[in-house]
């Protein structure tokens, strides 16, 4: 379609509309089913003992297949964060919101999620948080089963305890 039907054409609109059927693969399936069916967070142990969440098809460090599944706590520590003030196309959340890296207890690397239950300017590194789950009948095959993370009331973690996980 031309933007101006009378003058010379300088720009056109060319739509792309392609329908895919995406596969989660076995590991994300484990993780997502855990969220929806058991309200649990499943990761996997790597050959060198680290716990990855969400689990993945191979250990990024060794390139070897991952080992057994491991349940990880829904409590954790904010390692770092930012405050999002900008609307994102296709994003349902309304800014401002806090986007944080959270290292869950028992995991070896952070998971990214939103923090709520505090004023945006109260977010801080080292804050202890816990998952706020959706009601059982509203759980979905997605991290959206967790509405957000919120302060757990525990004292802040020491910087040294999470500084390797930034």
């Amino acid at each position: 379609m031309s933007e101006d039907a009378q003058g010379p054409i300088t720009m056109i609109r060319t739509p792309v509309d392609l329908e895919y059927n995406i596969s989660a693969g076995p590991d994300l399936t484990l993780f997502l089913r855990g969220l929806k069916e058991e309200k649990k967070l499943y990761g996997r142990r790597s050959p060198n003992g680290d716990v990855y969440i969400p689990p993945r098809g191979a250990c990024p460090v060794t390139g070897q297949p991952m080992l057994e599944e491991v349940e990880v706590s829904d409590h954790g520590t904010v390692t770092t964060f930012c405050l999002i003030n900008i609307p994102i196309e296709g994003q349902e959340l309304k800014p401002p919101y806090v986007f944080a890296a959270i290292i869950l207890d028992g995991a070896s690397l952070p998971l990214f999620h939103m923090i709520a239950g505090i004023a945006a300017d109260e977010a801080r590194m080292g804050m202890r948080v816990k998952a706020n789950w959706k009601p059982d009948d509203e759980l979905v095959l997605s991290l959206e089963s967790i509405n957000y993370f919120e302060p757990s009331g525990e004292p802040d973690a020491d910087y040294d305890s999470y500084k390797e996980h930034l």
């Binding site: 989660a24 693969g25 076995p26 191979a58 390139g63 297949p65």
Partner: peptide, 11 residues
């Protein structure tokens, strides 16, 4: 249609 994820195929 493979049951493997891309990562597993590559691994």
């Amino acid at each position: 249609r493979s049951d493997l994820s891309e990562i597993e195929m590559v691994q």
